[in-house]
């Protein structure tokens, strides 16, 4: 089997960070903060985080913060909980939490919790269990989880649980692997995994593996490298990851590499991007692929970073 083209991926990620002129980078401009998180975490998993200029990244990152405490996806864009988590995750990677006012970021997130325990993405009120995960993950990294009503937050997530054991965006919403990661992740961080039907959900998740070895995100859909992360991390958190064939999935991810120019795509021979490159590398990390650092399945950060947050005094 071909191997992971680590060097190529590193130079691909570094080039994406710099490139601002092509159509894709302009279309994606509003979510550059998440792009930074994907790229930098992938670099860290590949052992190459030291090839970026920390000062440059943090000063740009700070220029995306608003008076409210929330972060926008890029300079000039509105604050949103999505990019607030990405910013906090990037700072966690660099062990640079001291550059922000933690209470201010906390207040922004706390202000987004609704009466029913759910979270809005920003002041405009879109509600989604993705935002529940983000709020919980972000506050936990900041050691401020006690500032929200965790019990209500958990109750809301459970109201989105479906007959297949999975979770949707809002009550009644169909299960989707990305959404399942968010809900299982939030339940993991709040110590509530006993509320997940592990065997039922585990069967649904392991049936995401299709003949090619790749994973899809819902029944009867095409496989996609990003689900290597969403499905695998969920299976890992509920201790059912042995229910899929790891060898086949490794092969699928490796087959999605652009071995010439670096980067990983959704399916073999499609165009690569930094999103799929990160999720491919993160998937390989959970598959214990040699040479890739282990990633934490709930916080979506390298294990050494998470251990540093919780086990240093």
């Amino acid at each position: 089997m071909a191997e992971l083209a680590t060097e190529k991926h590193v130079s691909y990620i570094l080039s994406v960070e710099k490139r601002k002129d092509n159509f894709e980078s302009v279309v994606m401009e509003h979510l550059r903060m998440s792009g930074a998180y994907w790229g930098l975490t992938a670099l860290d998993l590949l052992g190459k985080l030291d090839s970026v200029d920390v000062e440059e990244v943090t000063s740009w990152l700070l220029s995306c913060q608003h008076e409210s405490g929330g972060f926008g996806g890029n300079v000039g864009h509105d604050p949103h909980i999505l990019y607030t988590l990405s910013a906090v995750q990037v700072l966690a990677l660099f062990d640079k939490m001291d550059v922000i006012n933690v209470d201010k970021v906390t207040n922004y997130i706390v202000s987004l919790q609704n009466e029913d325990g759910s979270f809005s993405g920003d002041m405009w009120g879109e509600v989604d269990t993705r935002f529940s995960y983000i709020a919980i993950c972000c506050l936990s990294i900041l050691h401020r989880l006690d500032k929200i009503n965790v019990e209500k937050a958990v109750k809301y997530i459970l109201s989105c649980k479906n007959m297949d054991g999975g979770f949707g965006c809002t009550p009644g919403g169909e299960s989707h692997a990305g959404q399942i990661f968010c809900c299982v992740g939030a339940l993991a961080i709040t110590g509530s995994l006993d509320l997940v039907d592990k065997d039922l959900l585990g069967w649904w998740l392991c049936e995401r593996q299709v003949k090619s070895g790749g994973l899809n995100g819902r029944p009867e859909k095409l496989p996609d490298v990003c689900y290597s992360w969403w499905v695998l991390s969920s299976l890992t958190m509920i201790d059912r990851v042995h229910w899929i064939s790891k060898e086949k999935l490794v092969k699928f991810i490796i087959d999605c590499q652009d071995t010439e120019n670096g980067g990983i795509s959704d399916r073999p021979d499609d165009a690569v991007d930094v999103f799929h490159t990160f999720f491919g590398v993160a998937g390989l990390s959970l598959l214990e692929y040699a040479g890739v650092k282990p990633i934490d399945p709930a916080y979506a950060l390298p294990v050494d970073v998470v251990n540093r947050i919780f086990f240093t005094k």
């Binding site: 995994l193 890992t236 201790d239 990390s285 959970l286 934490d296 399945p297």
Partner: peptide, 9 residues
């Protein structure tokens, strides 16, 4: 193992 599947259980 580098990945701990009971880390959150």
């Amino acid at each position: 193992h580098s990945v701990d599947t009971t880390r959150y259980l």
